[in-house]
Each structure stands twice: as C-alpha cells, then as structure tokens.
Design a protein around this nucleic acid. Structure first.
Lengths: 189, 189
DNA sequence: TTCACTTTTTGACCTAGGTCAAAAAATCCC
DNA sequence: GGGATTTTTTGACCTAGGTCAAAAAGTGAA
C-alpha cells in the first residue's frame, strides 16, 4: 500500500503503524459523491490518487465549486467534520479516486493520546490556513485572465479533467467569460 | 490580569500557569505597528483588548486590509510566524491595544512537551481555517452591499473604529463604492 | 452509429462597480 | 483653536465581466 502518501505525514514509524490501523480504503468512480450536503461528514479522507471537488449551491441554485483536492492531501467538509453538524457542501470525485478514510471518533482518540499526531494535525491545518490566506489575499481580486493563469500553474492536473464551468465558479467568474479567456489565450499563440 | 481571555483557551489549570509564564505584556497605541512588512514575526499575540488590522500592498502600491482581529483571538502574520521568514504583511493597531506576547521558540518548547497545548493550537487553527473557509465560500462573491451588511453583523466593533477605506479593501471594493452604499443604507431609514 | 443530453462557444447587449477629479468633512497636532 | 493633512463624499463617465439566447461541439448509453 502506497507508502509515499504516508511518509509525507511526518509521523514517526511507530505512530504511523498505529495510525494506519484506523484507516479504511475506499474507491470512488468519477462522478461519485464522497460527502453529500445535509449529512454530517463522518470521515476525513487522505487522498492516495485522483481529484475531488467541493461545491455548494448559491441562492440562485447554481453550483459553486470552492475546492479541488489531490493526492497527498486531506479532504473533508472541514466545517461539518470538526463540528459534526450537517454539511452545507458536497464533495464529488472529478476523476476515479483511491482514498484512505479515518472516522471522527477514531481521529479524536488518536489526538487524545498522541502528541505527534496533534503536531501533524496542526501542520496540516497551518498549511490549509496559509493556502486559503494566499488565495484570499493574492488571487481572488485579480482580473479574470490572471486568475485563470494562476489556476493553470497551481492545478495543472485538475485543468485536464475538470469541467470548464467548475473551474469558472471556483475562480468566481462565469463559464462564458472563461470560455472567452481560453479563446483569447489560444489565439495569442 | 484578565482571566477571561485565558479561560477561553481550554487549557487545564496547571498547564495554563506554565503557559502564562512565557507571556509578556505589551501595549500598542492606535496607529502603532505590531508587525512590519519585511521583518520576521517573532511573536504571536493574544489580544486582551483592542483591534488589530493586517494589510499588505498590492502591485499598485495600495493597502489591502485582509484581517481584523479582536479580544480573545490570536494574531500574527501566520505565514511569517510559522515559517520564520520575513513577513509580506504588516499589522497595525486600529484602536489602543493590550496584548500578551509569546515568542516562537517559547511556543515550540511548549508544543514539544504539552499535549494539551497542541490540542489548543490545533483548535485555534481549526477555527481560523473555518473562518477563512466561510469568508471564501460564502461572502467574497456576494454583491458589494451584501458584503457590507455581513461585515456590520460580524464586526460590529470594528465598524466603529476602522477607516472606511480599510473596511472597503477588506471587502474587496473601492472606498467610493462603500461610501455610496452607506448613503443608500442610511436613506432607506 | 445514433439519438438524447450536457457542456462549451459565440454574439448582442447590459450593469455593478471602477476611475478620475474636485469639494466637503473629519482629524491631527503645534 | 486654526491651519495642514487625511479621509470621505459626490458627480460624470467608463469598462470588465455578467446576462440571455441560440448554435456548435462533446459525451455516453443502447
């Protein structure tokens, strides 16, 4: 079983073995849901392969994509997972995925006993926090074309498999606008 | 010394006493800087009273305010504090402030020994992460007027002391636009 | 392969919010 | 308290990106 993912966690060998025992493997086909709006999210996923998309409906009923997550990262509806309240968002497989799942109670049990696992949790959150910070501070207010170019750099894999309209809503622009940007970029060479 | 702030941290009494020994008090007058762009941020602040504003300069040289922090919360340039690299943002007192500071090495020492402190650190980050998530997912793309009304609800205190232009850049709109929104809202009754 | 359905593209038009400049109001500080 | 400085307000105008509708291109199940 893919050790690359696990070594990236920074857990000492002994702790890692114990942690792994709480994981269960899960496969998702493209289009299947990992989390459905309205249900509390019981599991946190560690992505081994594939990409997931987080989205919710706005007040007009349109889907707004808010996250793409790939290999080596944790994925869940943060709000729902930490509060154990119903999720206001859904998470769908953009491609076929292999996940490792850990349940909320199992994770809490580890947190209560293991300092190292808390350190890991803290670091994962620090990164998540800094990523959101960066997006909020440096990306969200750029003109549409610049946002798309940023996306191509940061999510080169997602670009290949996600729908144009999901990429558009992720960047806060309309599909028509993104389509026009793509045409303009392809004309430029 | 203000116990309300400390009891909110969820540390058991013994740990709290040890933690407090690493803190030093600091006062800031309105307008004074806590963190200056370009310098590594050595301290994390726990705010006892007052409000702080985090901002950076965009490529046109305009200030972009990205955070307001108030009593009971931790404040620092996250990126700089966790990486110990020079900060790309500054933090300024919006009102007179009373802070408790802890240095990076002191915090790391506590983290290495105390499970409870790790739990606290993780929970603070979970909240910070969820707040950013919410802002990014549910607020940033609202029309200007709705964003301002959200701000009034969530930051009623900041509204009283912060400059209009800082609130505007925080919401990603121009001061002229916010001024017009305020007029419209005041006409509506 | 074809038919039904979904997604993307294109065109014509519109509007929220940006820009620029100048007046008015608020704040600072000697 | 008064003159300098900063911030906010207002008006006239502009533009990036949104809206609506219809055609074209993809996708997929039978």
């Amino acid at each position: 079983m893919s050790n690359k993912i696990f070594n990236g966690l920074g857990l000492p060998q002994e702790e890692l073995i114990v942690f792994k025992e709480s994981l269960s493997a899960r496969q998702l086909k493209k289009g299947e849901y990992f989390i459905t709006e309205g249900q509390a999210s019981v599991h946190l996923a560690l992505i081994e392969s594939g990409y997931l998309r987080t989205f919710h409906l706005d007040n007009k009923g349109d889907e707004i994509t808010t996250e793409f997550n790939g290999p080596g990262t944790f994925c869940s509806s943060y709000h729902s997972f930490y509060s154990q309240l119903p999720s206001y968002e859904s998470i769908e497989a953009v491609t076929d995925c292999n996940l490792f799942l850990i349940s909320f109670p199992a994770l809490q049990k580890h947190y209560a006993h293991s300092l190292q696992l808390n350190v890991m949790g803290r670091k994962v959150l620090e990164k998540a926090c800094m990523d959101r910070d960066y997006f909020l501070k440096r990306v969200i207010h750029l003109p549409a074309k610049d946002k798309y170019e940023w996306f191509l750099k940061v999510y080169p894999e997602v670009y290949k498999s996600a729908r144009l309209r999901d990429i558009a809503s992720f960047l806060g622009i309309k599909p028509e606008t993104l389509s026009r940007i793509r045409r303009k970029l392809s004309l430029n060479q």
